[in-house]
């Protein structure tokens, strides 16, 4: 097997995650899909690291994880406070930008 298949897998997972962001209305699930996309990227980074024979790709993936953790904390806090004020976690309910 060619290790490039990891990249194909990462692309597939990324696309699935992106589609999920677009079709799901529950903010939490949307958030999970974003995490899925981040993980797909991480997989690609790790594969690239192996391809180039150095650890820089892993370092990037590591930073991605840390930033993702921070993002999750803030994002979930936002969802919670949104739910408190609107009694709903639907991203479609926050549609004040329409004409």
């Amino acid at each position: 097997m060619n290790p490039v298949n990891y990249l194909y897998l990462a692309a597939l997972l990324f696309s699935i995650g992106a589609t999920g962001v677009l079709i799901r209305r529950n903010a939490i699930v949307v958030f999970m899909c974003i995490e899925l996309m981040l993980n797909a990227c991480n997989l690609a980074f790790v594969a690239f690291s192996r391809m180039h024979g150095n650890l820089d790709g892993q370092i990037i993936a590591f930073f991605t994880m840390v930033v993702a953790a921070a993002e999750v904390v803030v994002g979930l806090a936002i969802i919670v406070s949104l739910f408190r004020s609107r009694h709903s976690a639907s991203v479609d309910d926050a549609s004040l930008m329409k004409l």
Partner: peptide, 23 residues
């Protein structure tokens, strides 16, 4: 971190927010 901490955080919030019509 991910499976252990972040996903559990997700589960907490899911329980906190509960099941809504958005599902």
């Amino acid at each position: 971190v991910y499976t252990g901490a972040i996903m559990m955080l997700f589960l907490f919030v899911v329980m906190l927010v509960g099941v809504t019509a958005a599902d």
